[in-house]
Structure formats: structure tokens, C-alpha cells
Simulated assay, not measured.
Amino acid sequence: MNNPTIWWLVAGALVALELTTGTFYLLMLALGAAAGAVVAHAGAGFTVQVVVAAAVGGLAVVVWNAYRQRQTEPPAARETAQHLDVGETVQVDAWDAQGLAQVKHRGANWTAVNTPPSKPSPGLHRIQAIQGNRLVLEKI
């Protein structure tokens, strides 16, 4: 087998492996292998092929990693996306001595805690977060 064929087989294997893992990093390395194949088709030596493949693949991984870090959502947005109940309202009838309340939300009983700066008082509250099996509420 000649060098371009080997590079294309490596690129195909990396793409197939990427499809099983679901990350884009192996796809970026496959781009490097494809660049090595193109350079091999151009008649460059094996050392140049390896250097080009490593440079293109490595640069693609660095660029992809920088892109992913820029695209990450702030923690509050992730919490809202994970818990669709954040932002919903519940009625609190009474708070106990420990600062806990039992509220009914979506047909289930929940233990609720009040946000620290305000004092617990009965009435309508908004769900700020869900910590384990407790609703964190703020007074509306």
C-alpha cells in the first residue's frame, strides 16, 4: 500500500471511532490524517506528511477546544435547562421552626427552603433552584 492510502484509512478509522464516542476531537484528528493524505498525494516525503498531519490535527483540536469553552453556558442557564421547574411558582401555607415548608408542586410533596436574605413567610413563592430533593424558594 502506498502512503496516501494508509493516510485515508487512518482518517476513515478515526471518523468511525469518533462516531462511536460522540466527541469531535477524533474528527479533528481525522482532519489531520486527511491533510497528511493530501500532502502524500502531492508527493511530499513521509516526514513532511507526519508533520503536516500532526500540525493540522493538533491545531484543529486546539481550535475546537477553544470554541467549546467559549460556547459553554453559565451555570445558572444550565441549571434552568436541567430543571424546568425553576421559575415556576408555588404556594407556601406555613414554615416550620427549622425554616422548612412542605409544598405541593406537580402533584408531589416537596420540602422547600427559603433563600437566605429574606425571612420565611407564607404566600406565593418562586422556585429559584433545586438542591437534591429540596426546592429553594424566594418570596414574590
Results as ranks from 00 to 15, higher is better:
K104V: 12
A108H: 10
V90Y: 00
W7T: 00
D85F: 04
A35N: 03
I130P: 00
G45L: 07
A129C: 09
V90C: 01
P122Y: 05
V61I: 14
V62E: 07
V103H: 01
D93P: 02
V103E: 01
L84D: 14
F24C: 06
T89S: 13
V39A: 12
I140Q: 13
N3S: 13
A53N: 03
K139D: 07
F46G: 09
A30G: 03
I130R: 02
D93K: 12
A97Q: 12
E138M: 09
N133T: 08
A81G: 14
R68T: 10
H105E: 02
V50H: 03
W95G: 01
Q82V: 14
D93S: 12
Y67Q: 09
N109E: 11
L17I: 11
H41A: 09
P75Y: 10
A37M: 03
V50W: 08
L9H: 06
H41L: 14
S121C: 08
G57A: 06
L100E: 15
P122A: 15
I130Q: 03
F24L: 13
G45A: 11
I130V: 15
L137E: 03
W95E: 02
L137K: 03
E138D: 11
P120D: 05
V56R: 01
H125R: 07
A37W: 00
P4A: 10
A101H: 00
V90R: 00
Q128E: 15
G12S: 08
P120K: 03
M28G: 03
T47S: 11
G87W: 03
N3R: 10
V61L: 13
V39G: 01
N2Y: 06
A37G: 15
Y67H: 09
T80D: 10
F46C: 04
G45H: 10
V62M: 13
G123T: 05
F46D: 13
T20A: 13
I127C: 04
G57C: 07
T115A: 12
A60V: 04
A34I: 06
Y25W: 09
R70G: 14
A77V: 15
S118H: 11
E79Q: 15
L29A: 08
T80Q: 15
A54S: 14
R106L: 11
